[in-house]
Design a protein around this nucleic acid. Structure first.
Lengths: 114, 114
DNA sequence: CAGCATCCCCCCAGATACTG
DNA sequence: CAGTATCTGGGGGGATGCTG
């Protein structure tokens, strides 16, 4: 995690944030975990059909490494896992909700233009 | 701009937002334009030393195409340009400020851990 | 100063196949 | 079900040089 900071110009806070959430699907994953508290891998897949299984897996593992989400594995067959936000990850909620709000009005505007 | 929407799963608002601001440097550019109102190309360069001139140029032109920023060209020699947020672009302010806030506390936490 | 054009390399991410 | 492993191509992005 430390390396992130040194990539940022003069400690620019926006750049710091991007180091954590700029992955192609990370904010979307966090968004669904805010809305649904707990999600299984397949549930996330359904909610993000444009994200390949491979990508979903990669993004999840990076979020886990950065302590944004935590993973619970049930030792059963067939396998079952659950993902949820950590306490630290929950501090991203206001930011992601702002993304949601802006996206909603943006969608509305574009629909009106048709 | 329309194409953006159809890339989004079921109109997911977060995905819509990402279509606009997910470029590698876009949120950082917007951030500096919020803080400084008007910036010249070289001023943005100084504030984002890790962003190459080429990348800065590309990101700016995409933001302009999406009507987030507008560019004013002064027909002088040597050339002078100025960038600022459009009214539409200003609606992103709350979102970018949330990114700033989160990045600040994140930086603080990491400094404490040293 | 504020870019664009070109070249070129690397690696991101899709497709596919396999596994506990 | 919930992933890994491997291969591959296409393009994102750096470096450099040029211009009005």
């Amino acid at each position: 995690m430390q390396r992130h900071i040194y990539n940022c110009s003069d400690g620019c806070p926006v750049e710091s944030t991007l180091q954590i959430i700029s992955g192609k699907w990370k904010s979307v994953i966090i968004y669904h975990l805010i809305k649904n508290k707990v999600c299984r891998f397949s549930e996330l897949q359904k909610r993000m059909p444009n994200c390949s299984r491979r990508m979903l897996s990669l993004q999840l593992s990076e979020l886990e490494k950065d302590k944004i989400i935590e993973k619970k594995i049930y030792p059963v067959i067939p396998p079952k896992t659950e993902y949820k936000l950590t306490r630290f990850g929950q501090t991203l909620t206001p930011l992601i909700i702002e993304m949601e709000k802006w996206g909603r009005t943006y969608n509305t505007i574009n629909l009106e233009e048709n």
